[in-house]
Computed example of a mutant assay.
Amino acid sequence: MALDAIQKNILHEVADLDGIPQGAYNIRANGTSAGRNTTANIDIVTKEDKPGIDIIIKPGTKGESVHIPVVLTESGLKDMVYNDFYVGEGADVTIVAGCGISNCGDQDSQHDGIHTFHVGKNAKVKYVEKHYGEGDGNGARILNPVTTVYQEEGSYVEMEMVQIKGVDSTVRTNYAELADGATLLIHEALMTHGKQQATSDYKVVLNGENSSADVVSRSVAKDDSEQIFEVAIEGNTACNGHAACDAIIMGNAHVVAIPRLDAKNVDAALIHEAAIGKIAGDQLIKLMSLGLTEEEAEEQIVAGFLR
């Protein structure tokens, strides 16, 4: 697997990789495979009808991980992949995805990752997705991920969706359906600056009895950037759903939060919360009294808020 210094840095940013990962992996660089490894329990198969891969995890697989990062360093490249995950009954795995774009040219670079998860009965998945952009060119860095999750009875999915730096435009589309006793936890951390634009759209359908979902977004909008957070939770039986948007707004930024609850059963318990505001003055004063400048104090508060 031959990657240049820029590509290696992006891999570190989006997947915390400083070398070849342990276990199964598929690394995609500039639209082609740059490396792949499978294990006895996790197979990765190239799709024949469209770009992308199938990740097949055997029932009962425990303690293994899959890394599928994407790296783009060619200005003007538009890349789309379809990745399907089949997680067998009773498995317990970690999946690390994410995409980084380095664009030093004048043309827009874009990656659209279409991910579909089929999570088997009583399976457990931790999914980490990080998006990152860099480069001093005039071309935009665009990421439009689509994530769809189908959870069978008793399954558990935890998702960390992180975008902290350098992405000029993103539309993040997410959909999930849960069966009896399934649990879905989503934590989004997002920061925009300059004139960046970010839209996050989540829809969760609670079809199964005693299913539950918790969708939490924490975001910081700086300068002239714009953010839209939209979440809809539909409860079709006895279930529990919670959605929360907590945003810090700075400069001339614009933030919109749109929660939607749809209860179709008397035993569906659905809650939403939304808060948008500036950094509290007393927080700044306290940190500045310890010797920090106002800018340093703001950076510390933002970093802690997005954890």
Rank of each mutant, 00 (worst) to 15 (best):
residue 15 A to V: 03
residue 22 Q to S: 09
residue 184 L to D: 01
residue 183 T to E: 03
residue 244 A to E: 06
residue 283 Q to C: 07
residue 45 V to D: 00
residue 263 A to K: 06
residue 152 E to V: 11
residue 85 F to A: 11
residue 47 K to A: 06
residue 137 G to P: 05
residue 5 A to E: 09
residue 28 R to K: 14
residue 65 S to P: 07
residue 290 L to N: 08
residue 233 I to K: 00
residue 113 G to M: 03
residue 269 A to M: 10
residue 109 S to C: 10
residue 36 R to Y: 05
residue 224 D to T: 06
residue 90 G to V: 01
residue 55 I to Q: 00
residue 211 S to Q: 12
residue 216 V to G: 00
residue 227 Q to K: 14
residue 105 G to M: 01
residue 188 E to K: 13
residue 230 E to A: 15
residue 122 N to T: 13
residue 25 Y to L: 00
residue 42 I to R: 04
residue 250 M to G: 12
residue 25 Y to R: 02
residue 31 G to I: 00
residue 18 D to L: 04
residue 289 S to M: 13
residue 41 N to T: 09
residue 7 Q to W: 04
residue 258 I to N: 13
residue 252 N to V: 08
residue 217 S to P: 01
residue 268 A to G: 05
residue 215 V to K: 02
residue 174 N to F: 05
residue 303 A to S: 13
residue 303 A to R: 14
residue 167 V to Y: 02
residue 291 G to L: 07
residue 51 P to Y: 08
residue 266 V to C: 15
residue 132 Y to W: 12
residue 277 G to S: 13
residue 223 D to L: 06
residue 190 L to E: 05
residue 240 N to E: 04
residue 102 S to A: 11
residue 152 E to R: 15
residue 213 A to G: 06
residue 251 G to Y: 02
residue 244 A to R: 15
residue 231 V to P: 05
residue 68 I to V: 07
residue 279 I to V: 11
residue 215 V to N: 01
residue 240 N to C: 08
residue 270 L to E: 02
residue 305 F to G: 13
residue 67 H to E: 03
residue 166 G to N: 07
residue 29 A to T: 00
residue 299 E to D: 07
residue 273 E to Y: 08
residue 269 A to I: 03
residue 208 G to F: 03
residue 154 G to D: 01
residue 247 A to Q: 05
residue 241 G to R: 08
residue 75 S to H: 05
residue 88 G to P: 02
residue 110 Q to Y: 11
residue 248 I to K: 02
residue 238 A to L: 14
residue 274 A to Y: 11
residue 122 N to L: 10
residue 300 Q to A: 10
residue 138 N to W: 13
residue 145 P to C: 07
residue 122 N to M: 13
residue 207 N to M: 15
residue 69 P to Q: 09
residue 261 L to N: 10
residue 9 N to L: 07
residue 225 S to G: 03
residue 300 Q to C: 05
residue 103 N to M: 10
residue 283 Q to I: 02
residue 302 V to Q: 02
residue 27 I to V: 14
residue 9 N to T: 04
residue 61 T to Q: 01
residue 286 K to D: 00
residue 178 L to M: 08
residue 199 T to Y: 13
residue 289 S to D: 07
residue 219 S to R: 06
residue 38 T to C: 12
residue 109 S to T: 11
residue 194 G to P: 01
residue 137 G to E: 04
residue 125 V to I: 11
residue 2 A to M: 14
residue 24 A to W: 09
residue 250 M to S: 14
residue 127 Y to M: 15
residue 306 L to T: 06
residue 190 L to T: 08
residue 190 L to S: 09
residue 27 I to H: 05
residue 57 I to T: 04
residue 252 N to L: 09
residue 94 T to G: 06
residue 224 D to N: 13
residue 242 H to R: 15
residue 180 D to L: 01
residue 4 D to G: 09
residue 192 T to A: 13
residue 43 D to W: 02
residue 221 A to S: 10
residue 163 Q to R: 15
residue 94 T to Q: 09
residue 113 G to F: 01
residue 22 Q to M: 07
residue 161 M to S: 05
residue 117 F to P: 01
residue 157 V to N: 10
residue 86 Y to A: 10
